[in-house]
Structure formats: structure tokens, C-alpha cells
């Protein structure tokens, strides 16, 4: 078991190294000079001597292999570098932004599961009824409306017409928990609508599958109460695939909340990455990609290890 975990950790370390190398190389191959971009805001033309001096200060005049070595050396000591733009610590900035995106994803997931699972179960249980048809229509509609349209509509209706919530923005939880949660609600809902539709459909189809199984028929034949059959035998067994889909959706949301963060002015990781790429802020882009990729790899590692704990065959293979 220990050998297995060590081997998986070694593979994970190699993958992180490959990601670090790939992102470094890609950034340096992509056209666009970080100093020119930085000093050319609003169409101003920087003095070439200033560009050269700035390049030297940031070490961008060094040969590529030297820059790569410096980068790896820093990484080895856990230093992601400092932003080209404002000289702030990249790791510190990521530590500030990442929880906000995780919070957004977490809240959207909670809302989706809370609405999607009961609706999916009811739709399956009453297959062919108006509830089933309505949930089918609603989930089709929810899946077909792009998140940015929904987001804009939410701003229009809830912020501008009803004036129930601010149009967007962010207030730290420590400053005002109520304001923080109010501002979190709309972007979470915008993400949750499409996600809920997926959960409804997945739950409905897996519940229908399980309802056909022999053990359900046996339970009913034994005279077990229908509610108990549903709770203990059907829903519990149907949740496996739903949770798998939830995990995959959450993973894809890590980098997929760009539009929602933009529309609602939510200062999370996605917007941070887009701005960093736009500015060619190499340390920031490298840091964000590396941290995000490491999170993915870490999650996979945990799942692999859990599988091996649950299934000895995986361990042996």
C-alpha cells in the first residue's frame, strides 16, 4: 500500500514539473512582450530606454535557459515569484483569490444538489406525469441559456428593476457577512441553474435504472414501505453517478467561471488569470496555472488512493 502511494506521489510530482515547464515555455513563445504591454496602457508609447531598463530589472534580458533555471530554483523553495505589474507576492495573491472561486463553486454546487436531486427523484418516481414533463422542459431551458445571458438577466431583474441586491461586487466576509452572502448569491445562482439541470437529468435517469433492479422488486415484494424503498435502496444507489458528475463539473468550474466572475465583478481566480495573461505577467500566469493544475492532480491522487483503499484489485494492478 505504501509503495503504491509513494509511486502515485512520484507520478504527481513529475506531472507538476511538466506543467511548470510547459507553462513557462508556452508563455515565452506566445507573442507579446510583458514590458511593452505594461508600459503601453491607453496607447502610450514607452521610451525604448525605459523598456530596456525595465526588462533588465525583471531579469527578462537573461538567456531563456537562465530564466528557466531561476524559475525552477525559486519553485523548489516554494516561491512563485512577484508580479511584474505591482511587485506583489504571487502566492499571496493566489491565496487571496482562490478561496473566492472555491466559495462560488461550493455555493453553486450546494444549490444545484439541493434543487436537482429532489426534482430528479420526483421526476423519475412520477415518470410521464406533468412534474416529469415540467422538469424536462425546465432543465432543457436551463441548459440552453448561456450563463452570461442568465447573469445579465439577473442583474437586470434583481439589481436594476427590483433593487433587491447590488449589481455586483465583493465584500469580504470578515467585513460584512450579510453583504458578502448577498453578493455571493446571484453569481452562484447563475452558475447553479445549468448545473441543476444536469443533476436533475442525471438523477432522473439513474433513479429510473435503479427502480428496475431486482433488489428493489424484492424489497417491495417483502412489503417494505415505499418511502423506505426509495430512500434506502433507490436514492442511495442512484447517487454514485450523480456524485461523479458533480465532481467533474466542479473541476471544470475551477477554470470556467470567467464570465460569471466578470459579469458580477467577483474577484476570483478566473478573472485574475485572464488579466494576468492579458498583461503577460509571467509570474502570475505561471503561479495560477501551476496552483490550479496541482489542485487537479492532488484531487486525482486522493481519488486514486481512495480507490485503492476500497478495491484491493486496483492496488494489486
Amino acid at each position: 500500500m505504501l509503495t503504491y502511494i509513494v509511486r502515485r506521489c512520484a507520478v504527481a510530482a513529475v506531472m507538476i514539473f511538466m506543467v511548470a515547464t510547459a507553462v513557462f515555455m508556452i508563455l515565452h513563445v506566445v507573442p507579446g512582450d510583458p514590458i511593452e504591454v505594461m508600459l503601453s496602457a491607453d496607447g502610450m508609447a514607452p521610451d525604448p530606454a525605459t523598456v530596456a531598463e525595465m526588462r533588465a530589472r525583471l531579469g527578462l534580458d537573461l538567456p531563456l535557459y537562465q530564466q528557466y533555471w531561476d524559475y525552477l530554483t525559486r519553485l523548489g523553495s516554494g516561491d512563485l515569484g512577484r508580479s511584474f505589474q505591482d511587485n506583489q507576492d504571487v502566492l499571496g495573491n493566489i491565496a487571496q483569490r482562490l478561496p473566492r472561486t472555491l466559495e462560488l463553486i461550493g455555493m453553486a454546487t450546494l444549490l444545484s444538489l439541493a434543487a436537482g436531486i429532489p426534482l430528479g427523484v420526483v421526476a423519475a418516481r412520477r415518470r410521464g406525469s406533468w412534474i416529469d414533463k415540467a422538469s424536462g422542459w425546465i432543465s432543457s431551458l436551463a441548459l440552453s441559456v448561456p450563463t452570461f445571458v442568465l447573469g445579465t438577466l439577473f442583474v437586470l431583474v434583481f439589481a436594476l428593476m427590483l433593487r433587491l441586491v447590488p449589481a455586483g461586487g465583493f465584500v469580504p466576509f470578515s467585513q460584512s457577512p450579510a453583504d458578502h452572502l448577498t453578493l455571493l448569491l446571484m453569481p452562484s445562482l447563475a452558475i447553479a441553474v445549468g448545473f441543476t439541470a444536469v443533476i436533475i437529468r442525471m438523477t432522473r435517469s439513474t433513479v429510473l435504472d435503479v427502480l428496475e433492479q431486482d433488489w428493489v422488486r424484492t424489497a417491495r415484494a417483502k412489503g417494505v414501505d415505499e418511502g423506505k424503498v426509495l430512500r434506502r435502496h433507490v436514492v442511495r444507489n442512484a447517487l454514485g453517478p450523480v456524485l461523479t458528475v458533480t465532481g467533474l463539473q466542479m473541476g471544470s468550474m475551477l477554470g470556467g467561471t470567467v464570465l460569471v466572475e466578470f459579469i458580477f465583478n467577483w474577484p476570483g481566480m478566473s478573472g485574475f488569470l485572464v488579466k494576468a495573461v492579458e498583461n503577460r505577467d509571467y509570474p502570475e500566469v505561471q503561479g495560477i496555472v501551476l496552483v490550479t493544475a496541482s489542485l487537479f492532480i492532488l484531487l486525482n491522487l486522493i481519488v486514486d488512493v481512495l480507490y485503492s483503499v476500497l478495491d484491493p484489485q486496483v492496488r494489486k494492478s
Binding site: 445579465t152 442583474v155 449589481a167
Partner: peptide, 18 residues
């Protein structure tokens, strides 16, 4: 000074009194 990068949201924030 509060950042509203999206043009439409900036206008919406003014209209809403934010």
C-alpha cells in the same frame, strides 16, 4: 474606488445607486 471592469455592470451599478 471600486473596480467594475464590465461596461454594462458599471452603468448598472450607477443606476442602482451602488
Amino acid at each position: 474606488l471600486v473596480v467594475y471592469a464590465d461596461d454594462s455592470l458599471r452603468v448598472a451599478a450607477l443606476n442602482a445607486g451602488d
